[in-house]
Write a protein that binds this DNA or RNA. Sequence first.
DNA 1: TTGTATGCGTTATCAT
DNA 2: ATGATAACGCATACAA
Lengths: 334, 334
Amino acid sequence: MNMNEIAKIAGVSNATVSRAFRTPEKVRPELKEKIFKIAAENHYVYNASAADLKRRVSNTVGVLFQQRIGAVFSKTFMAIQETLLEKNISVIIGHTQFKPEVESQLLQQFLERQVAGIILSGFTKENKTLIKKFSSQGIPSVIIWEILKGSDFNYVGIDNHNAAFKATEYLIGLGHRRIGLLIGPYQKMERIQNRYDGYKDALTKNKIEIDQSIVISSELGFLQGKEAMHRLLKAADRPSAVFAASDYLAMGALKAIKEAGMKVPKDISLMGLDDAEFAAYCDPPLSTVRGPAREIGKIAAKILLEIKDEPGLPPKQYCLDSDLIIRDSCAPHF
Amino acid sequence: MNMNEIAKIAGVSNATVSRAFRTPEKVRPELKEKIFKIAAENHYVYNASAADLKRRVSNTVGVLFQQRIGAVFSKTFMAIQETLLEKNISVIIGHTQFKPEVESQLLQQFLERQVAGIILSGFTKENKTLIKKFSSQGIPSVIIWEILKGSDFNYVGIDNHNAAFKATEYLIGLGHRRIGLLIGPYQKMERIQNRYDGYKDALTKNKIEIDQSIVISSELGFLQGKEAMHRLLKAADRPSAVFAASDYLAMGALKAIKEAGMKVPKDISLMGLDDAEFAAYCDPPLSTVRGPAREIGKIAAKILLEIKDEPGLPPKQYCLDSDLIIRDSCAPHF
DNA sequence: TTGTATGCGTTATCAT
DNA sequence: ATGATAACGCATACAA
């Protein structure tokens, strides 16, 4: 059952049937109803592949994640999907696990499926050339959770440098001078590199020397946070505070501190970043920095929609505010 | 640039070009290389929509989630995607938030895109008719995280009844006789209903009367767990143990217990279910029941692949083992 | 508002 | 192993 057959039954042309579905306002109401009725009676299913082929672009958007779809990204993803659903756009999703060959394969899929746009959670070096390839094919892209000042990419995110800077300065304001850092794989992702830089700049601004021996980089996970924190605790001249630039690392670190028989924040202050949903339920509740996860997803989707309607505009760039969330994991230090 | 143009340049027919891409073994090696070279030089991009149209099925699989893609499902999802990527199949994903109209719209999208199969995380009443629609269109589906004994659906999951039963019996074995239950929206999802039944059956088997006043149903989330636990703590004749049939609820409950100035497991024992990744990092670490999250995703994807190669076989049904994970949140009761 | 006619780029059938 | 040709089902330019 296809549009031609419906047209035959309805005694109209296939063009009219097509219009009834795609541009219903162009078809006389009674006729439209008749067509819908026949379609329903015959269990007609619209063939999106055929439409995609003809229109040379599919009604889909590709979303690429580097990491786990965890406590933070899942909110962003849900907002993306909900927003696109309003325009009946499907979401093709892929996670790369930082593997360049997986990333290539997924982006190649997006290209071959003629996605109407792509959303990339974060920026890697490999990405840059691939994104250029998309824009050269006329496919718009949006980077999320990251800002790229001075670039001509579309993006919507938070200022990760500033978020880490704020968190670090908060600790400094509490009197801490020796502040450890637990950080993700900053070599791989610009977002994480920016957080690292935010930490360093806050220290430098406050005339605190950076001590690489209390900076630990690892993958993002509870276990990694715990292990890294154990190393930090063994360090000579132990830090009085630790900034974990991801709540996953922070919650892992919290466990390590308890295992060592110490208390947060009495013996050591702990600051997170991201405001993962579990952060408020840790013991003690984790002070952290919150980015507008849903908002980011929503805006990213809207950017794609806007570009679709009106291509060729200047890049759309949103730097959203992140908020310091003070809970109970940090204490003054004298 | 399309296959025809490549064919022209290579001095072969478009059919040969198509074969070079889809069934390379049917093309002479040297010729194949020549075609690939020309394709690369001209930045050719394979058009999946055209192929989908012609083949009457797309190289995509639809995945439907009811709830957040959180601590547990994200593992399953990642395994699905990784497995399908090996066959270069794209994943279209949607979450319904239990809204029937969203569910319908997403499934309609899957239908129109002619997905090669669908994976459904759990079973709702609405689902049943929709899945029949898919199978009537020749589209295979797999239910995950749930088993449907006696049905002719493909499924791969754990026995949720048994998981909850085990958890409850563990508590009973510890000497608890008054055991509260924190449960998700069991009216909406069979999986949750099964957990509820597992709890009840464990009690009944051990001749413990079921007291509805210490059974609280809510949505699945930290906050809901906390609120529900606060209600339980106020109950006359407070339970000595609580089984939270989701680790989200359990972690929320943990917070409520601490807020009330009590200790787990000294004052009250707390049992979770799911083994969300944060469970081991709670304080105290949460005892729970673990299902093989990645395995489920992997098998679900493979089922679809197998059906694709050989349709019309009897339903494939996997009930995987779940494991009781004993950590430190439950104590004996006398 | 509706119809006519054509083509999007691939795959598949049949032939060579 | 390769070629010729005909669909797949829809959207759209143009005509009426």
